[in-house]
């Protein structure tokens, strides 16, 4: 579904992605973790072309990302993205946020889009907040709307870029629960997160990154109990101290 082969990216002189090789198969849930600045957000932002890369090859659902500009919209319709800072449209209600792209990009009828949008908002537990504007919602609620917005395009892949980092602690769980239930349905996902307990319970594989490189890839069991790399041990030591 997603295949990085020898992908490299530079921000000026800064080498932010070094020789990334990674394949995510259909239905797989891959959690990407690592210290801040390790390139994990950049990695998943490349998948739907929010960031260009300079060298290597990235194939997503049969599309060569960056090499086929005409097919980028097609790609993005199939890849849902959830941002750390939600990025809901402040001038639209929750329901309008969710249905905007299905109506204008997929060309769905307003009625059908609204129906699907309502079902999705119900599903993320916001059936009673459809008419609310983003500023009337808590952070956790906003992020759930953002997930519904991505899902409403019926994507084949979902990408989560630190979906709970901007949330108050008491709201983290409501968002993670939604993601866990998605995983249970067999959605292909890449999740960048610092929530190690969540990673352990939901991931099929954990990818650990540092300084732009993938240091190790392992099952959650083996990564969390017996990390193979020095840096992995270091990182877990710091994160799991709390």
């Amino acid at each position: 579904m997603i295949e990085f082969s020898g992908v490299n990216k530079w921000f000026g002189a800064l080498h932010v992605l070094c020789d990334i090789d990674l394949a995510v198969t259909r239905g797989e849930v891959v959690v990407v973790c690592g210290p801040s600045g390790s390139g994990k957000s950049t990695l998943i932002r490349c998948v739907n072309g929010l960031e260009p890369y300079q060298k290597g090859r990235l194939m997503v659902d049969g599309i060569h990302v960056g090499q086929e500009p005409r097919r980028m919209r097609e790609l993005r319709m199939e890849v849902g993205f959830v941002f750390q800072s939600f990025n809901l449209y402040p001038h639209k209600t929750a329901l309008e946020n969710v249905t905007l792209a299905p109506i204008h990009v997929r060309g769905m009828s307003r009625v059908a889009a609204a129906e699907r949008g309502r079902a999705l908002l119900e599903r993320v537990g916001l059936g009673d907040r459809m008419g609310s504007y983003p500023h009337q919602l808590s952070g956790g609620q906003q992020q759930r709307v953002a997930i519904a917005r991505a899902l409403c395009m019926q994507p084949k892949v979902m990408l989560f870029d630190e979906p709970t980092s901007a949330l108050d602690p008491e709201m983290v769980k409501e968002v993670l629960d939604v993601i866990i239930s998605l995983a249970g349905e067999g959605m292909t996902m890449m999740v960048v997160t610092h929530e190690m307990g969540f990673a352990r319970s939901v991931a099929d594989r954990v990818v650990f990154m540092d300084q732009g490189s993938i240091i190790e890839t392992a099952t959650p069991e083996s990564f969390f109990t017996n990390p193979q790399s020095e840096r992995g041990r270091d990182f877990l030591g710091k994160v799991l101290q709390h």
């Binding site: 941002f83 905007l100 395009m153």
Partner: peptide, 29 residues
Amino acid sequence: PAGQTEAAMATGMSRAQQLRLVILPQAVR
């Protein structure tokens, strides 16, 4: 905010759609 453009882009909107549906309504305000 740039995140607005990114969010619109991530759902597959064309540049014209991003402007018309997401950016201009906010810019007008």
